[in-house]
Nucleic acid binder design. Sequence first.
RNA 1: GGCGCAUUGGUCAAGAGGUUAAGACGUCGCCCUCUCACGGCGGAAUCUGGGGUUCGAUUCCCCAAUGCGCUACCA
Length: 555
Amino acid sequence: MNNKELAQLIYPSLPHTPEEYESMYPKRQLADGAMVTRLGPSPTGFIHLGNLYGAFVDERLAHQSGGVFYLRIEDTDDKRFVENAVETIIGSLSFFDINFDEGVTADGDIGSYGDYTQSHRGEIYRTFAKKLLEQGLAYPCFLSEDEITAVREKQEAEKLSPGIYAGWSKYRDWGKDPEIEAEIVSRINAGDPFVVRLRSKGVPNASAEETERHTVTDAIRGELSVPDNFQDVVIIKQTGIPTYHFAHVVDDHLMRTTHVVRGEEWLPSLPIHVDLFEDLGWELPVYCHTAQLMKIGEDGNKRKLSKRKDPELSLDFYRKEGYHPAAVREYLLTILNSNYEEWRIENPDAPIDDFEFTTEKMSSSGALFDLDKLNDVSKNTLLRIDAAELAAWLKGWSDEFAPEYAYVFNDMELLEHILDLGRHDARPRADLVYARQIMDFIGYFFDEAFEIRDEYPAEAAADKEAILKAYLESYDHSDDNEQWFGKIREIATELGYAAKPKDYKKHPDEYKGHVGHVSTVIRIALMGRAQSPDVWAIQQIMGEDKVRARLQAAL
RNA sequence: GGCGCAUUGGUCAAGAGGUUAAGACGUCGCCCUCUCACGGCGGAAUCUGGGGUUCGAUUCCCCAAUGCGCUACCA
């Protein structure tokens, strides 16, 4: 029996030939330089910051070059399936403005390179596996789990590389031994379970000098020197479903992906993929192996972000806290491309997509996630969003994640005034960071959240009533900022406080305190806290009634 | 254990065979100022170590250390 007959025995009926698939999925008609990228999540539905980081690279590359970005569901591991995962994935990403042109959607596939769900592509994978079988580049393997374990133990004892490769699976050389050939045929006929393994061409356990190497271009890391693969990896599992390795090669070829963006954890299996691409006679895509996002662990060491331990890793964290998606994107870009911040300083108002993203500027070492930096980026990002938009966005956030703040949104116009406080000054305030923080920051405007939080300053606590009484009596809501502060100065002076802090600093014995202490008393009565934006501006937004009521209550 | 990738301040990082080794966040101090924020000025803080190559290396090479990853019919 020859290879062809064996292949026929294993896969007797397949609807299409490899050539037919090639013509069903022809090379894409795209402009020069247009990149085709893809995101291939498994359907656990869990998308974390690391996924977003990678997805962002895919999205930018494709959309910046006039190419195509598509979603493929990689569900070759049936144990990982989670209900509604696809919707969750698409939803999480679109929240961050990452949208697909093609692939799986909530209402079926879009695009002519599908099916985009790997578990629906069994016939395609089997067709190409059959081709490899016919050419003797793959073989059926009946090794049981126990046998494989035994092999590995023996290899460990002999200090050899673990795995199935030349010399370790009798099925590999099936053509040479009639006895094995007979066994294979009878077991296939008997319906025994088997896997299809790649018959690798590399020399097992060769020394560094003897190992053949291939040069592969990585758009992030430059030229990679990849050794020959000698592992007979499984390409089709017992279930008939391909492994990642095989699915990656077949899909990315047939879907005409030009750039494969994936985490650096794939680097060690690159030899397998190179081997497979060569066996199938296909051109290699450009690989972009991204560095992992890390986090500092309890032990002080860097470590990969883990979904169990790190709440800030889950995209939900940002949504629940109310980080604006634009801020998260902005932050991600600062760690993705080292020249981004510089660009942003030069182009403070440009849309983020105007930035020319390049893989060359990506770091090949893993970045540590930095919440401080995110917060800073977020402050500046929010400054670029106008109050009405911000208010609407906050409402959406509250509706979904924080209904306890519903009272904030009863008067949207009022909210806009509050949010705009000090934002249009020559040197705008930057104190809005994320929704939950904003709710607290502006809380004193609302009776529902108002509380006296801070202590009255020691210098003026004794005069609290006198100050507030005098203030209330002199209060004129139509005073402008200057008139208003003039009155505070008068009150301060009358009660024995310095009208200017400097005077008090120079002659601390001559005064009880200074005008700052007096205004702090007023600030606390009105806002409940010792720190706030300009009191006059706040009063104008609050309205006279509320101002008088608060002062009265504090007496 | 084997293999792969990585290593510039606390964090993100630019950088080139000869530089006072950028910048941002954070931090500290000062200024502005009725508080805070904003803004301005200034400070502390970095090339993992050891060998080479070289007149000279943080930069190139080797080794080591450390970190991360892979070593599945997971992805």
